[in-house]
Design a binder for these strands. Structure first.
Length: 743
DNA sequence: AGCACGCCGACT
DNA sequence: GTCGGCGTGCTC
């Protein structure tokens, strides 16, 4: 029996056939937080088939939606039915995409309209394409010639039509020069044909693969040629050449005329990766990530829908592009936790990529040097094919990893680098190599303390201390973005000159490096919400070219960049990410992060060294890292997860209750827990205060649901939410299926 | 996401 | 008495 909206949503997945005498209507899903498609009367003539993009009236507004089925879904009073305004001239949303919306909405317990919204996140794609204009040489040279104008005219001398931005870039001048020349009559503005996306050529530059690589590539190519759904875990040590290997599978799919999607963590979408692709296939893939402009998004969305975009490299949201004929998805760095989206629709892109492969009947490749426990278990249980690469190419050896016991060999007071690490850096520089110091903490210091009154400077909106960013002269909150100019006097007691920064961030380590190695060029590589993508790309280029000799970096450095001259990696605080209490993936994440970051060393030739500063050199994670014994670590971790029925052996869902006032949040969370339906094999834990109780002015309580793998967790959650008390006032409830963050 | 409806404080 | 604050619910 259908008892509430959550279950009703599930029940209506089975569409009814139209009945005699009923008004003709089709369901249209609009990209809003709506669970259901609404029925509309079709325009004149035939009813548009499912997938058609249509404009419909909704309330007083007009919205673009998608025809979601062949027959009306619910018994709405006929006089309530409105008519479709128009059918849009946009390729229909493919059936696979529509089924993906339904699947993701059902799995994450998100309104279907919200998931559709992700699929339509390119508003320009639905507007008619305006004509594009370009410039070509024409007429006499201008009366006043300048060096900049000369450069432009030289470039334009070939008579080709170029877009304004392109011409300016090629000539190395600003767009204003072009406008000036056009006004002077030396350039003429002409309409350009819409650009054809470049076609990647699978035969452009096939690589020479080592025997092990060739064998691995063979398996992946087989899966592509065979067609149909399969998942392959491509598991190879850093520097084993996984990218070259999966590029061969990409080539096979392109050769079959199919589209290819390569998912990367957002920050790994560097020009380094795009250039590598271009070297192999003759042109760059299309990019898809959050930093793209509206026009660009629209163009790419359309190109993907028409099947003209053959290869797309994108961040997790690229999964929701309307591929016309996707033949292969690659998830690179599949272990990356950033594939989990933590807001709006909370989905794990790696898992959705696999589901999309299943729905679209095509292979999926998961690639990593440090695969997730989930994927390793799937491979062991035979659900995924496991393809391993064990040797680094060109004889490069894996780095030699050692621990520096901070208890025995501590840094001086107020310093963060131990004598052993400092001397290792010195040796590395003497050998004309690069050194990387890794600390997963942005800014200068994570805490500012008043020595007069003991006050810790905290965020007014979050239960967190403000982090000093000295270069910008600011204290900021890493949870909400709150910014405070660095005060001279204590905000609590007003005493001046007694504020002291406590603990290190990358900026502070960089300061220590500058003191110890005053003449050595250094670079900080840190992901900051204020630094933009191009800035980060520039820094990465400066490092890979060898201009920076010492690199101080956060997480960002671990993400698949290739730094040829790097011989030493020093981990400043090896204990930092282990200390995440309550997070079942803390050990796994630490192991992956350390392996990835240390794997940056010695990729070109042997002799890479990794040094981890730690207070717990005997911790199992540290021992596994030092001995390089991944299999023992995995066996331990997998056994522990299995015993505790944690993912992937069990399923988790977090319920986060938040409100503007603490008692309100707590009261509702407790009422919610009481309303949980009885279920023998499902455990509901909490509510408990979230580790970060307050974020953005909202107090948060968490509940955790744990169930065995074969239990329908979504059905349980739906039944629960349908009988839950109404959330009143400022109370909000968020359901996070398969949570990755436990804060 | 908009937008209308509805129930409590400072105004003509 | 009314204007208007934004909390709540509906949009086929």
């Amino acid at each position: 029996m259908v008892t509430g909206p959550y279950q009703a949503a599930q029940a209506r997945l089975d569409l009814e056939e139209p009945q005699e005498g009923q008004v003709r209507a089709v369901p249209v899903l609009v990209p809003l937080a709506l669970e259901e498609a609404y029925d509309y009367q079709p325009p004149e003539g035939e009813a548009p088939p499912p997938g058609t993009f249509v404009r419909v009236p909704l309330g007083s507004a007009r919205r673009i939606g998608v025809v979601w089925g062949a027959a009306r879904t619910a018994d709405v009073a006929p006089k309530k039915l409105k008519s479709i305004i128009e059918v849009l001239d946009v390729p229909a949303l493919p059936a696979v995409s529509r089924r993906l919306v339904d699947w993701v909405a059902n799995y994450t317990l998100s309104p279907r309209g919200m998931v559709l919204k992700m699929m339509m996140s390119a508003p320009r794609a639905f507007e008619p394409e305006g004509p594009r204009f370009g410039y070509r040489a024409a007429g006499p040279p201008p009366d006043r010639m300048t060096p900049a104008r000369e450069k432009v005219l030289n470039v334009a001398a070939d008579g080709a039509v170029r877009a304004k931005a392109e011409l300016a870039r090629e000539a190395g001048v600003s767009a204003a020069v072009i406008e000036g020349l056009a006004a002077a009559g030396s350039l003429i503005r002409v309409e350009m044909p819409p650009p054809r996306p470049a076609l990647p050529d699978p035969e452009h530059a096939p690589p020479e693969l080592a025997p092990e690589q060739a064998e691995a590539a063979g398996k992946l190519i087989d899966a592509v040629r065979r067609g149909g759904f399969s998942v392959c875990l491509l598991d190879g040590v850093t520097g084993a050449g996984k990218t070259e290997v999966y590029f061969e599978a990409v080539a096979a799919a392109l050769a079959r005329g199919q589209q290819v999607l390569i998912l990367l963590p957002e920050i790994a979408l560097t020009s380094q990766f795009l250039d590598r692709f271009a070297k192999r296939f003759g042109c760059r893939p299309m990019e898809w990530h959050s930093a793209m402009g509206a026009a660009e998004r629209g163009r790419i969305w359309r190109a993907v829908a028409k099947g003209e975009a053959r290869a797309v490299a994108g961040a997790r949201s690229a999964l929701f592009l309307p591929f016309a004929d996707l033949g292969l998805t690659v998830v690179d760095e599949e272990h990356e936790q950033s594939f989990k989206q933590e807001d709006y629709v909370r989905y794990q892109a790696r898992d959705v990529a696999v589901v999309r492969g299943k729905l679209g009947k095509h292979p999926v490749i998961l690639s990593s040097a440090t695969p997730s426990i989930e994927s390793v278990v799937n491979a062991r249980q035979g659900r995924y094919e496991h393809v391993r690469l064990t040797s680094r190419y060109a004889g490069a050896a894996l780095p030699d990893i050692r621990a520096i016991d901070l208890r025995a060999d501590p840094p001086e007071r107020g310093r963060w680098l131990s004598p052993a690490l400092v001397s290792a850096v010195r040796d590395t520089l003497a050998a004309d190599k690069q050194a990387l110091l890794f600390l997963n903490r942005r800014g200068y210091a994570p805490l500012t303390l008043c020595r007069a009154c003991g006050y810790r400077i905290e965020c007014p909106q979050c239960s967190a201390t403000l982090v000093e960013h000295r270069a910008r002269g600011k204290l900021t909150c890493h949870h909400c973005g709150f910014v405070l100019p660095r005060p001279g006097d204590c905000p609590a007691c007003g005493v001046s000159g007694k504020l002291v920064p406590c603990g290190p961030g990358v900026e502070r380590v960089a300061e220590e490096v500058a003191e110890r190695f005053p003449d050595v060029p250094a670079a900080i590589l840190s992901s900051d919400f204020t630094t933009n993508l191009s800035e980060v790309r520039e820094t990465i280029a400066r490092i890979s070219s060898g201009k920076a000799r010492i690199v101080i970096g956060t997480q960002l450095v671990a993400k698949g960049h290739h730094f040829p001259g790097l011989a030493l990696v020093g981990v400043v605080d090896g204990d930092l990410s282990l200390a995440q209490g309550g997070d079942p993936r803390a050990a796994e994440r630490t192991f992956q992060l350390m392996q990835q970051v240390i794997g940056r060393a010695g990729r070109e030739e042997s002799g890479g060294v990794g040094l981890i500063q730690t207070h717990a050199p005997d911790h199992p994670v540290m021992r596994a890292l030092i001995s390089g014994d991944r299999d023992t670590f995995l066996a331990r971790e997998i056994a522990a997860r299995e015993a505790a029925v944690l993912p992937p052996f069990g399923r988790l869902a977090a319920i986060i209750v938040s409100a503007g006032a603490k008692p309100e949040a707590e009261r509702y969370a407790q009422a919610l827990a009481k309303a949980a339906p009885p279920a023998a094999r499902i455990e509901v834990m909490g509510p408990a205060e979230a580790p970060l109780v307050l974020i953005r002015g909202r107090y948060r309580y968490r509940l955790l649901v744990k169930a065995p793998r074969n239990v329908d967790l979504q059905a349980f959650l739906r039944a629960w939410m349908d009988r839950a008390p109404l959330a009143k006032g400022s109370v909000r409830v968020i359901i996070d299926v398969d949570p990755y963050s436990f804060l």
